[in-house]
């Protein structure tokens, strides 16, 4: 340790505080800047037709992203339906049924690794496993890629939330003669409901803004998503395509779509927080 006078020490401490406050303000400043620009530019693009019409061809100053809104809702919904039951059951195995087994140890490792893998790699995997063998891009492939991203998140949150349930609850139910599956489904799940729900909402929030895994799975489409067996319109890839185009009107539509996505993701994140806080009361 270096010997410093108390004046120097106080000064150093003040510098730390100033630097820390500056760092936090910097973060808040950028958050404000991004939200402000998206609200301003995206807000200008919103209109009735934005929500009801198909994307316009270049040069036409109208149109909207109605098909992409429907497509994104469908793909995200389908991904949720696929990943939530599987994820919760996997989390149950990890926490309740097979905690110390080799399967659980390996699966925990796999889940932790999957959470950190870039989402574009998941896109490549689904392309290789579904798109290429089936001979074309499809909304189903997009939903599968989002489900793969959600699955480890749901499983690990379910595991940690189930771990929080006090053992006395399980013991008293078992003492009453209930079978293990009934204890888990009717007692433990009910106790961990809010925590698991928070995890699900957060994972939906995370994938509803995902673009990279949809680029080579769902692709995009200028038409209504009548079937998920074909390339399917979605908001995020629409933003990417339209933003990169040279047409100003398309770029404006991309801003409008960005506003929708940002609003949805932030609303979901805040909801998750509220659900979790309510449950703690």
């Amino acid at each position: 340790m270096i010997h410093r006078s108390s004046k120097q020490r106080n000064f150093l401490n003040l510098v730390t505080q100033v630097v820390a406050a500056f760092g936090a303000l910097l973060g808040i400043f950028f958050l404000g800047w991004i939200v402000f620009e998206v609200l301003k530019r995206g807000g200008a693009a919103l209109s009735w037709s934005f929500f009801t019409q198909l994307p316009p061809p270049p040069g036409v100053e109208s149109g909207g992203v109605a098909n992409a809104i429907v497509g994104t809702l469908g793909i995200t919904g389908l991904a949720t339906v696929m990943s939530v039951p599987l994820g919760i059951l996997a989390g149950t195995y990890l926490s309740e049924l097979g905690r110390e087994t080799a399967l659980a140890t390996c699966a925990r490792f796999a889940a932790n690794s999957l959470v950190g893998i870039p989402s574009i790699i998941v896109g490549l995997f689904v392309y290789a496993s579904l798109v290429a063998p089936m001979g074309g891009f499809s909304g189903y492939a997009g939903a599968v890629s989002l489900a793969i991203i959600m699955l480890p998140v749901v499983a690990t949150t379910a595991e940690s939330m189930l771990n929080l349930v006090p053992n006395e609850l399980r013991e008293s139910a078992i003492a009453l003669g209930a079978p293990r599956w009934k204890v888990t489904l009717q007692i433990v799940f009910r106790a961990a409901k809010a925590g698991i729900l928070t995890g699900i909402i957060l994972s939906v929030a995370r994938v509803s803004g995902e673009t990279a895994p949809l680029l080579f799975t769902a692709l995009n489409s200028p038409y209504w998503p009548n079937t998920f067996t074909m390339p399917t319109a979605n908001l995020t890839v629409t933003i990417f395509n339209f933003a990169m185009s040279p047409y100003e009107h398309w770029q404006q539509i991309a801003w409008g779509a960005s506003l929708l996505i940002m609003a949805a993701v932030l609303a979901l994140t805040v909801t998750a927080r509220v659900v979790f806080r309510e449950s703690r009361r």
Binding site: I34, S208, G209, T211, T236, I239, I261, M262
Partner: peptide
């Protein structure tokens, strides 16, 4: 952290 990557891209 919640803001999606594509929004950072647009901005």
């Amino acid at each position: 952290a919640a803001i999606p990557s594509i929004i950072y891209g647009m901005w």
